Every structure is written in C-alpha cells, then in structure tokens.
Amino acid sequence: MSKQPRSRSATSRDRQAAERREQLLAAAKSLFAEKGYHATSTRMISQKIGMADGLLYHYFPDGKMEMLQTIIRDGHEQRVSRIDESWFLVQDDPNVPLKQCLLDFLLTIYRILLSDKELLRIQFREQELLDGVVLNYLTESVSQRRTQMAKLLERRAALGQIREIDYEAAAVQIMSINMLIVFKTVSGIDLTDGDTESFRERLIDNLLDGWKRADSAPD
C-alpha cells in the first residue's frame, strides 16, 4: 500500500518538471526572438518565469545553447507534421488543376510558417549556431519536401499536363517562392510589390508557361 502514494508523487513531480521545462523553453524562445541569442542571459530567462538563478541548469545542463537547439528542433518537427498533413490533401488528386494545387499548397505552407514568427526569426538570425545534428535534420526534412514536389510534377507530366522537365530543379523553384515571401516577414525587405498573393500567382504562372507541352501552345 505504501508504494502507490510514492508512485503518484513521482508522477506528479515528473509532470511538474515537464511543465517547468516547457515554461523555460517558452521564455527562452520569446527572448531569443526579441533580443537575440547572445543578448539573452540565462538569468533573464529564469527571471521571466520567476525561477531562481541557476535552477535552469537542472532542466538544461548545457544551458541556453541546449535550449536553442531544442526550440529549433521541436518547432521544426511540429511544422513538418502540419506540412505533411497538408501535403496528403493535395498530392494525389490529379483532377485539381496543377496551378490551383501549387497555389493552395504554397499558401498552406506559408500560413504554417507564419503561425510561429518567433521561431522564424530565431532560425534566420541564429542559423550559424545550430549544431550539426539539428542542421542535418532541417536540411533532410526540406529535401524530403522537395522530392515529394518533384514526384508530383513528374506524375502531372505523365498525365500530359506539363512537358518533361528537370523535376527536382522545378520543385526548388516552387519552394523558393515562399522563401522570398517569408524573407519579407523576417527582414522587412519586400520583393513582392506589397501584394504577396498576386506575387505568388504571377510566379506560378511564369513557371507553368515554361512547362507547357509544345502541342498545347497556341497556334
């Protein structure tokens, strides 16, 4: 009978520790996004949630560098999960016009990326601090999305909707459209003429014009 209360107590402590850890990550994320990694001290992170100095290292032995890597990795995992769910909705429906498919997907990805502007700012600003494991994970996940897009284009070519092209290069072109728009958000430099939806559609139209089959061109 005496073991059960200890088990419940241990479970409660574990839950409290997990909650405290998440509070620390949220505080660090907010400060990293606002002030930058180097301008943020562990004391500032602890004070933001009312924690005693030094206790942070109980949860993150490697301090704020461990917190930075965790924020980027966990945030990107959540982002990829949402992107994969969206991809499943569009990738296997050849009845949807290719232009609409690409526009819908790019808009969905854009909204997912902008749903966490703090993560975007940190990732762009602190990319040189990412360790090899996290950087390789980010690179591999983007590469997988590129391959998925390339296969979609290849399927559409097999259906006669576009001509044969370099599908991998074309996938990079499509993905770069959103990166230009996201760059505006994190840098303030606007290359879209102020209208992101029109800009996105114009670039897709330009790509599709170049991918037309020769026998689909007007006389």
Rank of each mutant, 00 (worst) to 15 (best):
D84L: 11
E85H: 03
F88E: 09
F88V: 10
F88W: 07
L89M: 03
V90T: 15
D93P: 04
D93E: 14
P94D: 11
N95R: 15
N95S: 13
V96H: 01
L98D: 05
L98C: 04
L98I: 14
L98T: 11
C101L: 11
L107I: 04
Y110M: 14
R111I: 14
R111W: 13
R111Y: 15
I112F: 02
L113R: 15
L113T: 12
L114H: 13
S115C: 06
D116Q: 09
K117Y: 10
E118P: 11
L119A: 12
L119H: 15
L119Y: 14
R121T: 06
Q123V: 02
F124N: 02
R125C: 03
E126K: 01
Q127A: 08
E128R: 02
E128H: 09
L130H: 08
L130S: 06
N136G: 13
Y137A: 10
Y137R: 06
L138D: 00
T139I: 04
V142E: 02
V142M: 03
V142C: 00
S143T: 12
S143G: 04
Q144M: 05
R145S: 13
R145M: 13
T147A: 08
T147D: 11
A150N: 07
L152G: 07
L153A: 02
L153C: 05
R155P: 11
A157S: 14
A158Q: 03
A158I: 07
I162E: 01
Y167F: 08
E168C: 10
A170L: 12
A171T: 11
A171D: 12
V172W: 01
N178A: 01
